[in-house]
């Protein structure tokens, strides 16, 4: 199939492993899904911290379940990316550990307090939900299928995050203030989660033309703001004065992008931010530390009998 045909046919769940697709499509889809899969893994690094910090047994259980879901999503997504025939899962995981793999901006900021749990589990996951819901209609069918399961489970994660936020905002005055301070720090990062305005995004045009992406950054951010500003306010959070928000003529909300730190954003997108180095370094060290296990597994699998089993 040539590119022209791909663009003509582009629509929800239009293409699958049975189609002979041009390299440009397969590479673009791989880049997008790999980014998504990497983000699931690197989001887990943050959520893992919250498991240890959870102040109730039920919260702890919900949190371990969430981290488990995220690894499950990564597994699904790497598989959906692999079916494009561009990279193997092992290659993608290697790229993540070496710092070549890209992932969401919010997961480049290490966390160390329970107050950050709703930032990730409510706002960031809520933002991810906005994006992922639109990806149910992506043109690469295995990706769309993965989104069905991911969106279902993310719904629980967002409720988990919301419940933590509600509880903290019902806490003592000191707790509420601490929550607000944490929100002030995270809010701009969350707004940048949706990337820059459309005309500055590098890969968007093509991804939209071939139906991989079905909504623009602007649309997603607007949709997030309309849904989450009222929720934040409902729990008593104040939206910081900067970055300034304004209402468009059609009543939707938008951000003054000049108020956001795009230099930091682009540094992050090159994996060169201080936190990027910390998070990726952690990934690399942890993966290096268990390299011997993967080698043992390979030895076992290459020497095993006629019905090899995988240890899992």
């Amino acid at each position: 199939m040539d590119l022209e045909t791909v663009m003509e046919r582009a629509g929800p769940r239009e293409f699958g492993p049975g189609d002979d697709l041009p390299e440009k499509y397969r590479k673009a889809a791989t880049r997008m899904i790999q980014f998504h899969a990497n983000s699931e893994v690197m989001g887990g690094y943050l959520d893992k911290t919250f498991t240890r910090k959870a102040p109730s047994l039920d919260r702890k259980l919900a949190n371990t379940a969430k981290v488990q879901d995220e690894i499950g999503h990564a597994q699904l997504l790497y598989r959906a990316a692999e079916t494009l025939g561009v990279k193997t899962r092992a290659e993608m995981l290697d790229e993540l550990a070496t710092g070549d793999g890209k992932f969401l901006n919010c997961f480049h900021y290490p966390v160390d307090s329970w107050y950050e749990a709703p930032m990730i589990d409510f706002f960031v996951d809520g933002g991810a939900m906005r994006r992922q819901a639109t990806l149910k209609s992506t043109s690469w069918t295995p990706y769309a299928h993965a989104m069905d399961k991911v969106c279902f489970e993310e719904g629980f994660h967002v409720k988990h995050g919301e419940s933590i936020l509600r509880e903290l905002m019902n806490g003592s005055k000191a707790t509420q203030e601490r929550m607000q301070e944490t929100f002030d720090v995270w809010w701009p990062r969350i707004l940048q989660f949706f990337g820059p305005t459309n005309d500055e995004s590098v890969h968007d045009d093509f991804a939209q033309a071939v139906g991989l992406k079905t909504a623009t950054n602007d649309e997603l951010r607007t949709s997030f703001l309309n849904m989450y500003i009222p929720k934040a306010e409902k729990y008593g959070l104040e939206i910081p004065e900067y970055p300034r928000l304004y209402e468009r003529d059609d009543g939707t909300m938008a951000v003054r992008e000049d108020d956001l730190d795009w230099e930091e954003f682009w540094t992050i997108s090159r994996n060169e931010y201080e936190g990027s180095k910390e998070q990726i370094g952690s990934r690399r060290r942890r993966q290096d530390a268990v390299e011997w296990v993967r080698e043992s597994l390979e030895t076992w699998e290459s020497s095993a009998g006629p019905t090899p089993q995988t240890a899992d």
Binding site: T64, V67, Q68, G72, Q75, R286, V293, L297, A311, D312
Partner: peptide, 12 residues
């Protein structure tokens, strides 16, 4: 969690 040798062993 997140540190296990493979995604499968992580889940397990």
């Amino acid at each position: 969690q997140i540190y296990a040798p493979t995604l499968e062993s992580d889940l397990a």
